[in-house]
Design a protein around this nucleic acid. Sequence first.
RNA 1: GGGCCUGUAGCUCAAUGGUCAGAGCAGGGCGCUCAUAACGCCUUGGUUGGGGGUUCGAGUCCCUCCGGGCCUACCA
Length: 576
Amino acid sequence: MARILITSALPYINGIKHLGNLVGSQLPADLYARYMRARGHEVMFICATDEHGTPAEIAAQKAGKPVADYCAEMHTVQADLAAGFRLSFDHFGRSSSPQNHALTQHLAGRLHAAGLISEVSEKQVYSNADGRFLPDRYIEGTCPNCGYDRARGDQCENCTKQLDPTDLIDPRSAISGSTDLEVRETKHLFLRQKSMRDQLRDWIKSKKDWPILTTSIALKWLDDGDGLQDRGITRDLDWGIPVKNGDKDWPGMEGKVFYVWFDAPIEYIAATAEWAEAQGKGAEAWERWWRTDKGADGVRYVEFMGKDNVPFHTLSFPATMIGANFDGAEPWKMVDYIKSFNYLNYDGGQFSTSQGRGVFMDQALSILPADYWRWWLLSHAPESSDSEFTWENFQASVNKDLADVLGNLVSRVTKFCRSKFGEQVPEGGSYGPREDQLIADLSARLKAFETQMEAMEVRKSATELRGFWVLGNEYLQEAAPWSTFKTDADAAAAQVRLALNLIRVYAVVSQPFIPDASKAIMDALGCDDWSWPSDMGAALATLPAGHAFTTPEVLFAKITDEQREDWQNRFAGTRA
RNA sequence: GGGCCUGUAGCUCAAUGGUCAGAGCAGGGCGCUCAUAACGCCUUGGUUGGGGGUUCGAGUCCCUCCGGGCCUACCA
C-alpha cells in the first residue's frame, strides 16, 4: 500500500466555476483519488478556495459586502457545489485560514534567512478614487500604437502590443473609470528565484516522465530571454496575509500583504494542517505528508492543474520549498508528478467566468445529476489539446455510453431475472467455457484500465472502462439466457447469476467515474462489498445464490432532443 | 514579434520511425427479442491541412506555407 498525496489547483473565490475549470483540475484529481483509494492506497486529497488578490476585493465590493464575509459565503457555495459533483476532498480548505497565515509567514521568514528575499522599490499607479494601487491590467486607456480606446495597461487586446501603463493615453481605472491616477513609489519583497535557476532546471530535467505541456512551459520560463526573473511576492492590498518575517514584524512592510500566488500553493500544506486540526489530530498528522524528515519520504505527490497554473507550480512554489530548506532543517515534500490540462471550450468559443459564457457548476447540477457531467467531462478531458463541449456531443455520449451500454445492461439483467427467477440470485447450473472466456476477457480489460488509470490517462481510462462494460452486453447476447431458459432453466440460472455479479463488479470499477450510479447499483444489489476485483473469478462469485436484490430504477435517463434544444438555447448567451 | 501545443473518417479521438492508419458515435445491412426504440454481428467511409526534404521505411523527424489554440512574468 502506497501513500499518495493529491492536490487540485485551487479554484479562485470570485464566483462559481464553470465546467472548464472543473475538468481542468478538480475532477480528474478526484478520479485519481477515488481510484487510488479503491485500490487500497492511503490517499490525502486536498483542495481549497484561493481567496486573496485584487479580483476578490473587487468582487466583494460589487456584491456590497466586506471581503471577509464575501469570501466566507463564496467558500460555502463552492464547497456545496464540490460536494454536489461528489468531489471527494479529504479537506476543502481556505487560503485565508489561520494555518495558512502562519505557514506563509513562516516560509517567508525562512526564505529571508536564506538570503533569498530582496527589497525592491517600484513605481506603481495608484487610483485615488478607488483607494488602491492598480495592477497593470486594471488600467485602461487609448493604445499609443493603434488608437484602440480600451487597451489595458499590460497589453493592447486590439493590436496585441505589450504596453506599460504609463504608455497609455488618457489612462483611467478599469474599476471605477476614474482618471484621478498618480504614480507612487512603493516597496516590495521579491523572491530571488533567479539565483535558483540552475537548481530548478536540474530538478525539472530530472522529471523525465512529465507531460510535455508541463515541462515545456517550465523550461520556457527558465531559459527564455534573460531567463527566470525574480518575482514580487507582496502587494499593497488590505485583504491577504500580512507580511511578516515568521512571527515577527517586517520593518518597512507594514500594511502590505503577500501576493496571492505566493500563499496559494502554500495553502496545499496549510489545508492539510486544517484537516489535521478538524480531525482533532496533532501536527504530526499533516507533517507525515509534507515533511520528508517526518514520514513524507515515502509519499508520492501528484498535482493536477490547468496549463495556466504550470509556471507557479514548476518554478515559484518549488523555489519556495527548496529555499526554505537552505540549511537542511526543513525538507519539504516536492511534487513528483504534475498532470496539466488544456482548456475546454464551449460551443465554438471559450468558457468565461468574467463574461458568464458557458455552463457553470450550479447550472449543470440543476439540469442533470453529477454522474452525467462527470462521465462526459472525464471521457473528453482536454489532455492533448483544447477540447470542445457541444450539446450534441454531450447528448450522444451520455445516451450511448451511460444509458445504453451500462444503464440498459443493468436493466435487462435485473428485469430478466425478476421475471424468470424472482428478485434473488438464481440457484443451479454451472459455468462452462463461455464463462471462463468472459472471465479472461474481463481480466485483460481490467488490467488495461488499471494501466491507463495509473498513468493518469483520463480519456483512455474512460475508453477502457466503456469497453469493460461492453463485454457484459456481448456475453449476454451470446449466452442468450432468454433462449436457454426455454430448454435448460439451470443453465439460464447460472448465466443470470454471473450477469448479476458482473453488474456488481461494474459498480465497483466504475465508481471513480460515476460514484452515484455505482452506489445505486450496489444498493439495489443489497451489497456493500467494494473490494477491487483483482481476482475476477472470485469477484464474480461474491453474490451467492439466494441473495436478494431489488430491481433498480432507470440508472440514466436519456437526454431527449427537446431537452437538448432547450438547454442549448438557455445557455447560448451569457449569464446575468 | 518570440516560444510552445495542435491539424488524422461526417463528429470526438487513437496510433515507442516499422503489418493494410485504428476505435467509438453517426450512416448502411443482418440477427436477436431479456432490456431505457435497447443489445450483438457485419459493413461503407482517409492523398493523415498544402508543398518540399531525410530514410530501406514518415501520421510520426527536418524545412516551408496555411488554419486553430495557449503563454509571454502586475488577472489568478
